[in-house]
Nucleic acid binder design. Structure first.
Lengths: 351, 351
DNA sequence: AGGTACTGTGGGAGCGCTCCCATCAGTGAT
DNA sequence: ATCACTGATGGGAGCGCTCCCACAGTACCT
């Protein structure tokens, strides 16, 4: 006996069916118009669009997701505590690029932090429920289980940077090798003869590549590479200080330092100052990341800039491609799915 | 002729039906167990849970959303460009509180920026599609159309701060009045006799209340309020400088200043310095927000602290209540739905 | 013994959409 | 005039869940 009128549970919102009735067409046709199918005559399309406008029709996402098995949403997963996310400009730049590129589409972006174990647990559950069509993974460490979980669940994903030379996931990286090389080349061209390198954490592939670039830069200049000139730090200021002290101890006649990050360069600067050395007169200093630190340092720090915002855009492009190409599972090779964007040396007063 | 086997479009994920078959019960029973209904015997529940575990069953959110007309997601809407979001600790603190409180539930948080017109357009579309069960609105200006859109769409929402004394939406605010009063009380107790106030933008209700508190603080001390001691700024550093200059011009014998924000206090400090006045010896200075600026200022700035993280938690509590109480539409009054959390004076060397 | 009131359970009827097959009218070739 | 296509359209059959009614079983009354 129950009368199921137009005003159902969904709060009186119009449905596809109602739009179809209004436009005097079938359900399928309205669906085609909504989804931009070309197989609709112009007259029909116009009629449907008018009905949509009159009724203020908005598609029900849940119904669409259920029927089409897609969510029109992707997640930006940050496997870090929220604090780091806000502290580092890297993330905000990345987010800007991602947001810009995504605003061209109908896709929705979710921001998910997975710093704590508890949060990672929730994330796993979330992914298992397939609540997103794809995932953007930033700042992943070499031993993170997340990428494997993703491929196991067959969720398209793109990673920023790469975990190793054999990265299997689609990825967008910047040219750490070229960046390292450019830094050294610059120092050589300024007549520096003994150039040290404060390396980053060696379990980060990008840091390894910077070292490789440093080596090659020296070789290009016809110099021998003395491994004792390479001191590992850990990307922190304190690490930079320690590494710098050690380097100075080994080579009192050092006249240039290439640090694997601006933060380490800041630590190095302190040690150089304390030892009475002037920058750049006695020792030239170069950092990496071109962060705010670099611009505000005294003297302003020469640094290697990564096009982070552009990397964000590229990641979205790749991911959308992956999602669209879902049908011929793993058809294309990896070649076109791993991008490396150029890094650029920004010269300032420290070198 | 088509055979619709167990492995359907959804990528072979088990369904409720399959779990039911496995556990030897009906569909309804499994649903009850999944949703924690008490109307299930212990034995049956155990059997179902075992089946869920064996099959690795995860509910299909889209189907649930469609059938139950809810999304289990809420949005934190920031009507500001992303840049400001990252720049101000207010948001990151808020996000931390919100995230913490939400992690106790099954709800998913979406972060949505609506700084540009284009983004606002998208947001409106998003809300019209009812893709979230509720909305948290932070940093809303008096004339923002968003709150009205929300109530028109009948989407539960909670606002941080309030737009005016007659705020109609559920809200969580801090006690700006009490904070202003406490600041003045403190200055009076330190023997300051001529106390100025650098007010914030007067279209922000909280700024008005700080002024009210300032006034009452003086009255409490039995002093007369001279309106020329109150100079409006605009919450910026430059505004703080201008207001401070004006104030100093009017009252060269000023011996205390209460600024409506730490940033304005920073501007004021510069002007005070330039005029040769020492802080706190000649002039005491108090800010508002207790931000990083306050702690790092020279001398460290006395400031009024708002419990932002706690406000975030409270907003979630309120919102979840609103969502749960959807049935008796607008039943409860507003009394219990507008919280005011205490502000606290953090005394440092500047006063 | 017959009622009354639970509790626990099964399963039909949707939710609003997409997918896809059937249908129909039009077009050009035979 | 007939046949084979093609493009445009209608609508059935799900997608996987929740809601709710119906029904069996048990317990407690009169």
């Amino acid at each position: 006996m129950a009368v199921h009128g137009a005003r159902s549970r969904s709060g009186g919102r119009p449905t596809l069916e109602e739009v179809a009735a209004r436009a005097g067409v079938g359900r399928g046709t309205v669906s085609r118009v909504i989804n931009g199918s070309p197989r609709v005559s112009d007259a029909t399309r116009a009629a449907v669009e008018a009905a949509v406008a009159e009724l203020g029709y908005v598609p029900n996402t849940a119904a669409r997701a259920l029927a089409a098995n897609r969510t029109d949403a992707i997640a930006l997963v940050v496997p870090e505590p929220e604090t780091r996310f806000f502290a580092e400009p890297y993330f905000s730049d990345m987010l800007r690029g991602v947001g810009a590129e995504l605003s061209e589409t109908e896709m929705q972006l979710l921001l998910i932090f997975a710093g704590s174990d508890r949060e990672r647990q929730r994330l796993a559950q979330y992914l298992a429920a397939h609540r997103v069509d794809g995932v953007l993974l930033v700042s992943v460490h070499a031993d993170d289980p997340l990428p494997d979980l993703l491929s196991q669940l067959e969720i398209p994903a793109v990673i920023s940077g790469r975990r190793s030379a054999e990265e299997t996931l689609p990825s967008v990286d910047s040219d750490n090798y070229g960046g390292g090389r450019a830094a050294v080349e610059h120092l050589v061209s300024r007549g520096r003869s003994r150039i040290g390198h404060l390396a980053g954490r060696m379990d980060v592939y990008g840091a390894q590549r910077r070292v490789d670039g440093y080596r090659q830069g020296l070789r290009d200049a016809g110099r021998e590479v003395d491994d004792r000139l390479i001191v590992p730090g850990d990307f922190t200021e304190e690490g930079g200080r320690r590494a710098m002290s050690l380097l100075l101890e080994r080579f009192p006649d050092l006249d240039a330092v290439f640090a694997g990050s601006d933060v380490m360069a800041a630590g190095a600067r302190q040690v150089l100052r304390e030892s009475g050395r002037r920058i750049p007169d006695d020792v030239a200093l170069i950092g990496y990341d071109d962060s705010a630190i670099a611009r505000h340092m005294d003297p302003p720090l020469t640094s290697v800039r990564q096009p982070i915002e552009e990397m964000g855009r590229a990641m979205i492009d790749l991911l959308l491609g992956e999602i669209a190409d879902r049908r011929p599972a793993a058809s294309r090779g990896l070649e076109k799915r791993q991008l490396v964007l150029p890094a650029e040396l920004v010269v300032r007063a420290s070198s």
